[in-house]
Structure formats: C-alpha cells, structure tokens
Design a protein around this nucleic acid. Structure first.
Lengths: 191, 191
DNA sequence: TATCGGAGTTGAACTAGTTCAACTTTTAAT
DNA sequence: ATTAAAAGTTGAACTAGTTCAACTCCGATA
C-alpha cells in the first residue's frame, strides 16, 4: 500500500502509534504525475506539500540570467515543498518537475493546518525534519565555498547514487552551480 | 530587563501568554562573553542554544584548506545554534566567537528537552523558526549560484547594515565565500 | 526508417576570482 | 606614546570556471 513508505519515513523522526499514523496519512491524497509534467511552476502559489512514493522530481528556479538553478532532487522517500509559498501563500520562485512517471502523496494547506491542530506531535515531526534540513543546507553552502566543482561533483554522485543514475548531467550541473559544458570537462579529466 | 528581547522575538512566531513566556524564559540563563572569546569551538560538543541580547558573534568553520568559512553572524535578536552538535551531542564543526563584548541567554540541552515537554507550543515555535531558517538558507544558496561576488557583497551590506558596520571586511569576505583581497578590489571598483 | 530535438563533447577565447608578496593603515596592548 | 599585530590595499601572474559555437550522439516520435 502506498502509505507504507510515508509511515516509515515519519517513524524515523517521531514515535507515533498505528492509529496516529493513520490519522496523519488520511490527510494525504495520492496523485500521479507523468514524466516532464510540473507539480508547481514559478509565479503560482503553492497549494500543497508532497511526499514522493515513486519516481523523481527536480526542484529548480529560473534566475535573472535565465539559468536554471536546482535546489534539490526529490526521489522516492523525499519530501517536496516550497515552504515559503505554501506557508505565506505568496508567488513561488520554484518549479517542481517530474523526471519520470511519479507518484506523490499531497497534503493541502488547510489539511496541513488541521493536521497540526489535531495531532500536536506533528509539530515535533516537522520541527525535527526542518532541523535536519537546515543542517544539510548549511553543510551544502560550506561545501560550495570550500570545494572545487570537481570535488562537489564526485561528492554528489557518491552521496546520491540512485538519484545520479536517474538524471542528466545537465541537471547535475544545475545542482552544482556550474555550466554543463564544464561538467563534461570535469568528467573527461583524469581524477 | 534582559528577557524582553527574547519575549518579543518569540512573539513574532507564536502567541504565548505572559505566563507561558515566563516559563520559557526561566529555562534560559544569562551569560556575558568578552570580545574575541569563544562560546563554542570546533571539535567540542555543543552544550547550549543561545539568543543574543547584546553584541555580535560570528559562526564559522575552518575548512580542509585552512580557510575560515562564515555560516552567519548573530547580532542582537538573533539565535546562535549548532543544531547538529546540540541535538546529537557529536563533535561540532563550528566556532562561535564574540566580535564585541556580548550578552546571551543560553539554554542547556536538558532544559531544552524539558521545555519541549513542558510546553508543547514550543515545538511550534521552533518548527516555525527552523522553517524560516530553511527558506533563507535556500535563498542564500541560489544567490551564491546566480550572482557575482560584487552583487552578493552589496546585497549583504544593504540587507544587514547594522551587522556590516560591526564586522571587518575580512569577515564579510569569509561570509561571501571570497578572499578578502578580492573584496578589497570589489570595493575599489566603480559600482 | 527518417528525422528532429535535446543531451553531451570539444576547443578557443575569455573573465571572475585566487594567490602571493610587498606595502600601508588601523587597532589594541603595554 | 610606542610598538606589535592584524586589517586592508595593490599589482602581477595565475587558474577555475564561463561563453560561444560547432559538432556528435542518442532516443523519441511520425
């Protein structure tokens, strides 16, 4: 059943009873997205938070120079959110595109609010999730400042082999913050 | 009284009664730190989370090349934390140094846990704080990838004029991820 | 089976940012 | 007031990464 993965994911962060897990899951609705389709586009208002059950997404923004900048990839067992747009109902800066046929569990804003209210331990769940998220964003920034593009590339493919295998080099370059031509030269150069 | 600022800060994120605010504040202990002293050093285990009442700190890590990399500055009304080391009681990668004589309110790990348990709305408080933090780290990464050092420099001084005025150019360079010699050239070049 | 478009490759010229070393200015401690 | 140390400046040589354009190599679609 498609809620299993979500339940496992939640249990990594907080202890919930089977009943509580069911309550949480009931707020999430399954959705299928075809390859190349967008779950969110820049300029629109984010209506959901999502959890990826199957497939893979890229989350990117188109910057002032017209370059794509990838914030993160979300494969199976990852969360998909535009926190800012979802919380404040402001125009999003982000695009979320399926890189293959995918299945997600989505929670609407009103359901998210209801969930927080009906089950206070969910506050703790997301507090811990965001806490962990913060740590990894901090690490990524330091890595960007202290490593070369080549080092960052090998770090990425070693850390996320499953994701690396699903995406193009162009998309990896957009994540690393380099041009894809240069990534091509990195791969060619001897280690 | 030195808890006022903390109370105001909390009220920006959640609605607490005066009594609840007092409960929260009671877990925090005032501390004075002299200029140049360290509140945390790389390799040690972080025993506290802090809120800056007066003064200013820089939070940085010494990377493998021996360069200082500044994660953030914390002036009055900012939080000081090494989430990873504090939560998991693992060796810290971070240094927290006072840039001037400073006053902080510190909460120990056992008190933080007790606080979460005694007042569940504190979970919401930190959930929202971390949520906002995540958004700004994401923005910073995109900015690093899509702007030149010069643009990032002017963005920094315009966004944080109070902090800019307290710190050296060397420290700003360590935050921007550039060498201080290059920052010197940026400032000299016509806008 | 042809073809079209996107992903990847390559090279040459370029530029943003680094490195190092020498120097000046400011700050802090005695 | 003196001095030492740290911060800031400058220039010259360098390098990591960009830009642009031409080309190849698929993989999807008609």
């Amino acid at each position: 059943m498609s809620y299993d993965l979500l339940q496992q994911n939640i249990k990594k962060n907080v202890n919930l009873s089977a009943e509580e897990l069911d309550v949480v899951c009931n707020y999430f609705k399954p959705n299928s997205i075809k390859k190349k389709e967008f779950l969110l586009t820049q300029g629109s208002i984010c209506k959901f938070e999502g959890f990826v059950v199957e497939g893979c997404f890229r989350v990117f923004t188109l910057d002032k120079n017209g370059n794509e900048n990838t914030l993160y990839f979300a494969a199976k067992d990852w969360w998909l959110m535009d926190i800012d747009s979802f919380m404040n109902q402001t125009a999003s800066d982000l695009n979320m595109q399926a890189l293959e046929d995918s299945k997600v569990l989505l929670i609407s804003r009103s359901n998210k609010i209801a969930l927080y209210e009906s089950l206070p331990v969910v506050e703790k769940l997301f507090r811990i999730m965001f806490q962990k998220g913060l740590v990894s964003w901090q690490r990524r920034l330091v890595r960007n400042h202290s490593s070369t593009a080549k080092e960052r590339y090998y770090h990425f493919v070693e850390t996320y082999p499953e994701i690396s295998s699903k995406i193009t080099d162009k998309q990896i370059a957009a994540y690393l913050g380099i041009r894809h031509e240069f990534l091509s030269k990195i791969k060619k150069s001897s280690n």
